[in-house]
């Protein structure tokens, strides 16, 4: 464990807490893409299958349970909770994320560390996470004004993978046989997708203005 990875995990946890806070405090999920939440739940379920087979550390197990639990709770909330689901921007959240799932699964069948079921699923979860934020970014562009908590949620979600890239660079130089090129390339793509969001987020912070994404 290094400071980049720990900070990255904490940033990821913070993004989930901010999202839970927004949904719980405002009883609204306006500006949040249900499709991105569903993709993330799928990412965690596909990636953490080894939850009960390979024990790595208490921290690792606890965080996996938190990520799986929170992502399923958010999807449930946005689908079932009568107050919350009323504020869901259904007509704006129309990105066909099933294509993302199919594409990532095909890619995982072709490009993986070892052609075994757990490895293919792991690669699938890595590729899917890289593109899972697309419905959310599309929704933000369509909905124009972004409320603070939603903006902070998306910012933290993007920042965590940028910190993971620093972690992979650090591990590459400090661990002899470290090679995570699948996660690293996917992580670079994932972070690059946030580039223009980071730019407008920085502008809104610098000018102390409302976050506006050009539609």
């Amino acid at each position: 464990m290094n400071v980049f990875r720990l900070t990255g995990d904490m940033t990821h946890l913070a993004s989930i807490l901010v999202l839970l806070l927004k949904i719980y405090a405002t009883k609204s999920c306006s500006g949040i893409s249900l499709k991105t939440q569903e993709l993330y739940a799928l990412v965690f379920l596909a990636r953490y299958l080894n939850l009960f087979t390979d024990f790595i550390s208490v921290y690792n197990t606890v965080m996996k349970l938190v990520f799986i639990g929170s992502s399923l709770a958010i999807v449930w909330c946005m689908r079932m909770h009568k107050m919350v689901k009323r504020s869901y921007d259904q007509e704006l959240d129309t990105f066909r994320h099933y294509f993302l799932i199919a594409g990532c699964f095909l890619l995982a069948l072709l490009v993986n560390e070892k052609f075994m079921f757990p490895e293919v699923l792991w690669a699938f979860s890595i590729y899917l996470e890289a593109v899972s934020t697309i419905p959310q970014l599309v929704l933000l562009q369509r909905s124009g004004n972004v409320d603070n908590l939603t903006g902070q949620y998306v910012f933290l979600l993007g920042a965590y993978r940028a910190l993971y890239i620093l972690n992979w660079i650090y591990r590459y130089f400090t661990e002899p046989h470290f090679s995570r090129w699948i996660a690293c390339v996917a992580g670079l793509v994932q972070t690059a997708l946030y580039a223009d969001f980071f730019y407008y987020y920085f502008l809104s912070w610098k000018n102390n203005a409302k976050l506006q994404l050009p539609s």
Partner: peptide, 10 residues
């Protein structure tokens, strides 16, 4: 191919 490393990251 060497055994894939255990995925110790989240």
């Amino acid at each position: 191919k060497e055994e894939p490393q255990a995925h110790d990251e989240l």
